[in-house]
Every structure is written in structure tokens, then in C-alpha cells.
Design a protein around this nucleic acid. Structure first.
Lengths: 356, 356
DNA sequence: ATAGCAATTGAAAGCGTTTACATCTTTGGT
DNA sequence: ACCAAAGATGTAAACGCTTTCAATTGCTAT
């Protein structure tokens, strides 16, 4: 490396303003005494070039510190080796976990992932998707199955496969679970324990095929036993811990004999808020109030008492979604639906109702 | 072959196998009756093209559903409008928050962000960075100031600016705070309350300029008062809630008169683990043990008792880092160091030591 | 009208790869 | 040895955009 070496010929390692320019395939080719095509081959299909040549190229590339320009590669191959993910929010641990394992899997397959969040808004999601599509992602992971129709249209047009997660579908490829069934079971568990008045509180259910079915599951379980879930016991809150605190107030405000004895929450964060408020107001959990969360967030097991919750294997969802998408991008045939099984994790926040 | 050979009729809207091809600038140009250069201008510098022409182009683009190919654009401009972020882990809420606000800010400026996690490992970080650099990111956000020297070298070579976060530096551009001072203050607060035996427990301190200084801060505060922090009261654990539980056992295992009366934790997760174990073992917090966390994670305020912690404005860090990086990428001059002020949030886990 | 000038527009040369296709080497069978 | 077949390498044309520079157009002020 001799920056000021006066070279009579075209000096490939510096440009007009004297700055050393980054080496390109051409430079490697010259140094190795081969053509640029061979350089490309050595990098992409090493087995197709003779060992001796291969090594010469490798050596030259290493010497120059050559790094392939992926924009050029993307332009030429029409594939970006990039995939996109849009989650509703980074504030929900379960999405972050899924995203993380999705990313890990994709990364291992040589893909980078572009992530975005929709803030539970269809228009925002569409906007982010458009951005990702323009960026040329080769695949897209979405949460849930309710999206702007235009999103599907554009993805289709660009031939970008979509994998849906966290909910099931019979029209799209998906990795998810039956949200309604999950809470249906949890509700039945409570009902079997003797509870008669259940409440359900979730985050927004608008355009949300996870929260809405979760509420339905509780309604359904009660209906099957001839019980009715009072509208006052069916709450939609803005997600998050503080929302849970508020919910407690609304739910437990009425006369004692009308208060729910068990609450099923759409997320552990909501459950935590409820527990926190209960503790503050001196309401004993699980003695006078049973609580069931959703997701089994990391903090749930160490609360006092430990939160009974519906565990969903977010890592598995992330990983399987990545694998599925990888298959779709390879145009391979594959199973359309991957069903994950949520599990009711029994801990300390559930007990039979107070017999009073 | 033959340059003057009349090219076969070019059907711009479909290719050989009949599939409708995505429209490109050329198609828009033809439909609008202008040149491809004008299409480009309309899209990038609308003010430079006459209103009438602009509208014609816009109309044509909309009609065809034209989407600019960003790989081609990146190749041509040598800028990808993409930035990279590498955080130590997605398991720490504070990094996710910073990442999220970093992303929001970048997104608003027209950049996409590629995120990666290093799992607190320098080699992994280097690998991810290399991947990002190859991807042609225009800028990079890193957590802390301890990285593979080669990382700096390569970034420099590609002229990719780096913004360091969560710690301060006098050599690099950074948005962070003085980690040592933060715990130093917290320790002094406890000391002022009358505590004599403090403990500190953090995650790994190897190549970590956040955890290590946090431990130092506690040592320093005690040293200034002629007290010594027993090695047995200085723990390094793998981060996370369960690690905190273990830490409790180790710390509180000794004879009563040697146990610490106050613990300062490197993260709220560790503090939560400690609180959980304390509760299980019937150790009263804050009566017989004071606990201070770090970061003010979302759950901290609603624990019982609410966790006293050192709040760091992660959103601010993410946003300011993004702004700083945006400036650096624009080659604008800017402040080198943005100092964030951590705040000790007094809640329920701290009290004077038991006078026994 | 018309020169003079500024504002628009177009032509064409990149940007750095990949990849048919053509060409040149090997290799193996006889 | 010799020829065909197989294998390795090179040539050159995309890929779809940006951008310089020159040519054209539209104005304003004579």
C-alpha cells in the first residue's frame, strides 16, 4: 500500500481527489490476474473455479480488503437478501422475543432483517410495508391476519411472500395459534374451579385478530355453561401496565356481589397492572380475585404471587416463521399452517372463588 | 454482438415469460412523454422540474404503480439510506426502548434501520458490524465504547460514522451518561441513610463500559467514607431475573452481621430477581434490605414495594443518537458529546438500615 | 421582434455486480 | 497421441437509477 506512489497508469486504488477508493471486483481481478467474472464466481460458487485460481482470488481479495457491494449485487440479482418484519409494538415483550429469534434464524441463513412497528394501526402498517417493499425485501413477516388489502396486493405484485404470525389463517401461510381456544381453556379452568363471574380485559380489538378472539374465548366458555359475561366485565384498554391498573378500578368498583372473581387478561402487562392495584388496595390475590395473564413474560414468574398465565412460545413462532419464509422465498412447497400450542401455566394467582 | 442491429420490439410491460414486469423509470418516462432523467428529478428534486411536467410524471408514476428500485438508487448514489444498530441484547428493556426511538427518528428522516445484537460478545459484534458494513449502512450506532479495533478501522475505511451510546467518551461522538457517577450517587444516598455494608451486583463487566463503572461507583463511594466493599458483596452474574435470584442467595448466605443492608444492582431485572427471592425467603424489603435498581424498567414502578432505581431516559438516548448520526452523515459539525443525566427515582425499596 | 439569460430537459456515462454465451483448457478414452 | 466432451475462464450485456454537461426552451427587457 503506497498511497503516494506515482503510478503512470490508471491507479485503481485512488480516485481523482486522492482519497483511497474502496476496492471493487475489478481491482481484485487485476491483482489476481483473472477476469472479473472469475472473481464473482469465486465468491458465489467457489466450487466452480479451479482451486489454484480460487486461492489466488481469495488472496487478492483479502489483501485489498475487498468487500462486495451489496447494492450492486441486489441490482444485478434482483434479490436483496433482506426481509422485513412489522410488529404491532416493541413494548410487548412477546413480539420482541419473536422478532429476536426470527432475526437470529434469518441471520444464520444470510439475511438481514428490517424491522418496523405499526403501533397497532393499519395505516401505519401499510406505510411501513410500502417502505419495506420499496427497499426490496425478499419476504415479509406480519403479526396477525388483518391488514390493508393493498398491502397484499403490492406484495403479490412484487412477488414478495408473506408469513403471518400469532394467529391462524386458512388463506395465508402462517405460524400461530388459536387465540380463542387459549382463553376458552383458561376460562374453563376458572369455571371448573367454581367461578361464576369472570371478567376479560384486553388491549385494542380493532383490526386485531389476537385480542378479539381472546375476549371471545371467555364469552364462549361462559355461554356454554349458561352464564353471561356482563358488559361491565368486558374491558378494552390501551395496552400496558398502567392500563391494567385502571382496569382494576373499573372492574372492582361495583358492589361486592357483582364484582368478578376471576379476570383473564390479554397480556401479562395488564395482569401486572391489575395485581399492582390490587395489592395497593388490599385486595387479596388469589383469595378474593383470581388473575390469568397471557404470554408468560419474563417477569411473570417472579411476581408475588407468581402469575398464572397462558404461555406462548414466542421464540418458536419467530424461528418457525423465519423457516417458513425461507422456504417460501426459495419457492419450495411447504406446510401452509404451523400450529403452536399455548399452555396454561399454573402459578399463584388462581384459586377457587371465595365462598361468601 | 452487432451494435447497429435493430433491437427487437421491446415490450416494456411484460417480459419473456409473459409475467407482467414491474414498471421502471423508463416506463414512466415513456408514458409521461419525458426523459428518464426528468423522472428521476421529479422524484428527487421536484422543485427543479416545471409544475406541468412534474404532474405529468407523477400521474404516470401513479398510474403504473411505479416504485423506485432502491438497490439501483443505492448503487448510483453510493448511499443506502440505511443505518445499523448493534445492541448488546434484546432482553434488556432499556436497549429495546432506545432502539425503538432511534428507529422512529431515523424513519422520520427517511432511513431504515438494520438492527443486530451482540449478546455482549465482541467477536459477535464485529461479525454483525461487518455484515452491516457490507450491507452498505450509512451510519452505525453502537452501545458503549469498547469494540473490536478492526470495527473502527473498517467503518473509517468505508467512511461510515459511528455514534456511541450509553457511555461517554472523549474520542468518539457519543450520547450517554457517566455510569460511575450514577451508582456513586445512589451509593451515597444509601450511605447517608446510615448503611455501612453495601453490595453491588451487575451483569458481565468484561468489555463493558457500563457495568464495570457502575460497580466502581459503589466502591468509590464507600472508599470515600473509609469503608470497604467486601469482595463477597461484589457479584458478577449473568444478566436477567433468575441471575438476581441466585445473587440473593450468595449475598445473604453469610452470618447476619456480615450481610449487606443495601444492594445496588446493574439492572432492574437483577433487582427484581433479588426482590422475588427476598419475598420468598421472608426477608423484608426495605426493612432489612434496601435495593436499588438501574434503568427504571416499565415493571419497576408497580412491584411491591415499588423499586427505587436509577432512571435513564432511553428514549432520549435513542433519539439523540439518531439526530447525532444524522448530522454526522450529513457531514455537519456537531457537538461531540451529548450528556444524559440519570436520575435516582426514590420509591419503596430503600430505607435506613435496621438498627440492630 | 430579439438578444441575452436563466430555467428546463435530454443524452449518455457511470455505479459494481451477475450471468448468458463464447472461447479456451483439460481430461479421459481409445 | 488425438479427439471429443467436460470444465474453466473471459467477454460483454444487463440491472435501474443518478448526474454531469450540453442542448433546448421560456422569459424579460430592450
Amino acid at each position: 500500500m503506497n498511497p503516494d506512489h506515482p503510478s503512470p497508469r490508471k491507479n485503481r486504488s485512488s480516485n481523482s481527489d486522492g482519497r483511497t477508493r474502496l476496492p471493487v471486483a475489478q481491482d481484485v481481478a487485476e491483482l489476481a490476474g483473472v477476469s472479473i467474472a472469475t472473481v464473482s464466481r469465486t465468491l458465489n460458487e467457489p466450487e466452480k473455479v479451479r482451486p489454484a485460481t480460487r486461492e489466488a482470488v481469495m488472496k487478492a481479495a483479502a489483501e485489498l480488503g475487498f468487500v462486495l457491494n451489496s447494492a450492486a449485487r441486489a441490482l444485478s440479482t434482483r434479490r436483496s437478501s433482506t426481509v422485513g418484519v412489522i410488529v404491532p409494538s416493541y413494548g410487548n415483550e412477546v413480539f420482541v422475543r419473536a422478532l429476536s429469534s426470527f432475526q437470529r434464524t434469518m441471520r444464520a441463513a444470510g439475511y438481514q432483517v428490517l424491522a418496523a412497528s405499526s403501533e397497532y394501526d393499519l395505516a401505519t402498517e401499510m406505510q411501513e410495508a410500502a417502505f419495506l417493499l420499496q427497499r426490496g425485501v425478499d419476504g415479509l413477516m406480519l403479526v396477525g391476519g388483518i391488514h390493508d388489502p393493498d398491502l397484499y396486493a403490492r406484495a403479490e405484485r412484487s412477488q414478495v411472500p408473506i408469513i403471518q404470525s400469532f394467529s391462524l389463517s386458512d388463506r395465508e401461510y402462517c405460524v400461530g395459534f388459536d387465540n380463542r381456544e387459549a382463553t376458552f381453556r383458561a376460562a374453563n379452568y376458572l369455571l371448573d374451579l367454581g367461578h361464576k363471574r369472570l371478567a376479560v380485559v384486553t388491549g385494542t380489538r380493532e383490526n386485531n385478530d389476537r385480542a378479539a378472539p381472546r375476549a371471545e374465548g371467555v364469552h364462549l366458555a361462559m355461554a356454554e355453561r349458561g352464564l353471561e359475561l356482563s358488559p361491565a366485565h368486558d374491558l378494552i384498554v390501551s395496552s400496558g401496565i398502567v392500563a391494567g391498573r385502571d382496569a382494576f378500578g373499573q372492574l372492582m368498583g361495583g358492589p361486592k356481589e357483582q364484582r368478578p372473581t376471576g379476570i383473564i387478561c390479554g397480556t401479562d402487562e395488564i395482569a401486572l397492572g391489575i395485581m399492582s392495584e390490587a395489592s395497593e388496595r388490599g385486595v387479596d390475590i388469589p383469595r378474593t380475585l383470581s388473575v390469568i395473564g397471557f404470554n408468560d413474560s419474563s417477569f411473570s414468574a417472579v411476581l408475588s404471587p407468581p402469575l398464572t398465565t397462558i404461555r406462548v412460545d414466542a421464540d418458536e413462532i419467530g424461528k418457525s416463521s423465519a423457516l417458513a419464509l425461507l422456504n417460501l422465498m426459495g419457492a419450495k412447497t411447504m406446510v401452509q399452517v404451523t400450529r403452536i400450542t399455548p399452555e396454561l401455566v399454573l402459578r399463584g394467582t388462581v384459586a377457587p372463588p371465595d365462598k361468601l
